[in-house]
Design a protein around this nucleic acid. Structure first.
Lengths: 110, 110
DNA sequence: TTACTTAATCGTAATATTGCGATATGTTTT
DNA sequence: AAAACATATCGCAATATTACGATTAAGTAA
């Protein structure tokens, strides 16, 4: 136990949940917002941005990378991260679709 | 440790992360989708929908309720759940705004 | 080569999440 | 009142997440 029973749900449900999971920590939201604003894309700057330890920030970056949201490329001693626009757009559409389903709900049933 | 350092982040960042957390389990996505489709709104039916134990489903419902996404009202022996449309719309807009920020990003920086 | 810098990974501790069975609570029905 | 039903809560076990310091790896500069 302690593990989610993923096999009970549809591919889409698991996908939406997985993306939401990647977005479920404020540090990761902060990182994404920072990258979208393009104030910087260097890992060291993101460490300052989050206010967390370097190792912790690195862990969050890894999760965002695994989710396909960001990508990093080595630039000398630094690593430059950026939003993977293609994936981001895909996720954006998926969430928009998911949320929009409620526009047809006129009234509360209870 | 093990606790997120919420005080390091903005109210908005924490809010987005909190909503995402509520959406970060496929069972909860399944519940929401079911309620949006209005196939049913009775707790017992949602237990079947998820395929999880009654107590586990009840726990997921509680989390969605805590996040303000759904509301339940007692109807005799049953409890009828439904989407809180007002909150849902609010969250929908918040996420749309969050995702849209990337439409201005023309190219990858790295 | 050695020293320095940056970032990833490892090891570990604290806490949170997921899931279930058992039990409690509250509402109908008999 | 007693039995039946639906749902919430409790207690527990397994696993996941968050965070940090220490270490490793790899590039750059002296």
């Amino acid at each position: 136990m302690g593990t989610s029973k993923l096999e009970l749900f549809t591919k889409e449900q698991n996908e939406i949940a997985a993306i939401a999971k990647a977005l479920s920590h404020p540090a990761r939201i902060a990182i994404i917002q920072s990258l979208l604003k393009k104030n910087s894309c260097v890992c060291g700057d993101l460490v300052e941005e989050t206010g967390l330890a370097q190792s912790t920030t690195s862990q969050h970056l890894k999760e965002l990378k695994n989710a396909g949201i960001i990508q990093g490329s080595v630039d000398g001693v630094n690593v430059c991260y950026c939003i993977d626009v293609k994936t981001w757009t895909k996720y954006s559409n998926l969430f928009a679709k998911f949320f929009e389903a409620a526009t047809h709900v006129k009234s509360q049933c209870c």
